[in-house]
Write a protein that binds this DNA or RNA. Structure first.
Lengths: 87, 87
DNA sequence: ATTTTTTGTTGTATATTTACAATTTTTTAT
DNA sequence: ATAAAAAATTGTAAATATACAACAAAAAAT
């Protein structure tokens, strides 16, 4: 199976928690360069690794990883505000 | 990284849709034996493959795959009914 | 400014996933 | 009961993810 390119928000989420790649890597139990590869979207994680990341951030997989390029979080917020406000 | 064993509900979901492994395999674009390996939980999918399966069934990844053994769907329903009824 | 920490890059080795083929067993249909 | 279809099993090859090391570049701290 030719794997599609996947997008993710690891960098932003990690920055919001103020931890380094090295720290995140230790928490999820991978080499710190592996986090680098993931953040640069040079390869896709296994489902198990995706789960570990999702568990650490306390977020569903779909909010972190996507088959479509991910909008900045701030844009997502604005869209949600519009949706609610426009009812 | 030593990968944890993951559990999934592919077999049940597939049966509910009345399709064979071969058909599912064609839809998600993998070899039909690969579906077999996944259903027998002999190995974990990549995140991309998990996404393809989740897209086909129209369900979030977390409802199909889990790090914990998955209860039969019927039990989930009963638990949800109890939760709602007991308010 | 310079030291320290973090991030990026490159290359190689290992582990895991996926493909594919051939055969056996089980289930379903007739 | 028999045939046909589906699923399981086994083995090998390929592709991809992950580990790890060494070094360069960039950012942050002092």
């Amino acid at each position: 199976m030719k794997s599609r390119k996947l997008y993710n928000r690891i960098t932003v989420l990690r920055k919001e928690r103020n931890i380094s790649r090295k720290e995140l890597a230790e928490i999820i139990g991978v080499n710190f360069q592996t986090v680098g590869y993931l953040e640069r979207e040079e390869y896709n994680p296994s489902l198990d690794l995706a789960f570990k990341i999702s568990e650490y951030f306390g977020l569903p997989v779909e909010l972190i990883f996507s088959t479509e390029p991910l909008k900045p979080l701030i844009e997502e917020i604005i869209e949600l505000k519009n949706k609610i406000g426009g009812q």
